[in-house]
Simulated assay, not measured.
Amino acid sequence: MRLAMTTLGCPKWDIETVFTRASDYGFDGVDFRGLQENLDITRQPEFTSEMDQTRRLLDEAGLSVSALSSSIEICNSDSSEENVSRARRLLPIAHGLDVEYIRVFGKGDSDTQSDSEMARTGRTTMEQILSLEGATDVQWIVETHDNWTQSEDCRVLVDRVDSPNVSVLWDVGHTARTGSESPAETLETLGSSIEYVHIKDAVYEPDHEYAMDDGWRYVAPGTGELPLAETIQLLRRVCFDGWVLFEHEKRWHPELQDPEHAYPAFVDWFKNLSRGR
């Protein structure tokens, strides 16, 4: 398994700092969900006019860009034009930095549409995206999120899209905390469709000042109530060799630990877990 960090966790770092510290901390890759104040990297010079410099910094750090985490919502019929536009802008970045994965959301309006109808829209959107030049050189990963958090629902969407270029991003925090699934249940349902994994931990403390709407709050990996160790053990058992991302959401939750401490602590935790400590 290869370890990646997300730029959600370090919203104040410039791109050189991102690469330097990711390498120093022992990560293998960086997942871009924005950079500094801008969530849309396709509008930033580091990924357009200054792409050659970004590529040089990436190579010097000995890293990969594990994924580009987009805001594309494939099951939203009223935003299909914007979805395709976003995909079109992301593809030159993916090709320029040798990125294999682009994350998308399912979303959709579950109040007015059935899962089947939303999945049909998802298929149509992905067909439009995959018709773009170079789109089949990339793997588009659908996150277990929103209407598609539970593994059986996500399976319905991915099966309906029915493309070898579309697979699953397993967010363990979502399936366990929101979907009420054990890691074994998720893995049994989604199996080899899983190509990318998000890791974060949380505790259920509904009265805490930083609790989210569902009563949970994020904590350092290994200190919470989510089945992270069990998940890693199961992934090893099936010889998963993809990316494991520490999704440190400092941008959304400023009360979380600063990245200078959270990121190296995650790498230490993961390596100790590997050694059985």
Rank of each mutant, 00 (worst) to 15 (best):
R120F: 03
T42G: 07
T231M: 09
A61L: 11
K271F: 04
S163T: 03
G34T: 11
L228D: 07
L226Y: 12
R86P: 00
I129T: 02
V244R: 07
K12V: 13
T189M: 11
S23E: 08
D162Y: 00
Y196H: 14
L234V: 10
M51C: 13
K271V: 00
L245N: 14
E46Y: 01
G215R: 03
P221Y: 08
N147W: 05
Q113T: 05
G122E: 01
Q139A: 10
A262L: 03
R155L: 06
G222Y: 14
S151I: 08
A67S: 15
E82V: 07
M212E: 12
Y263L: 15
R251Y: 13
Y204I: 09
N76T: 04
M126Q: 03
Q53W: 12
D52P: 04
R155C: 00
L68K: 14
T20Q: 12
D201C: 07
H261N: 06
Q53L: 04
G122R: 01
Q36H: 06
D59N: 14
F240V: 10
C75P: 14
G191D: 10
R123W: 00
T144E: 01
I74Q: 01
G276Q: 08
R160E: 11
Q128S: 14
V166T: 05
T149M: 02
T125C: 07
D213M: 09
E255S: 02
G222T: 09
D31M: 11
A94P: 11
K250F: 09
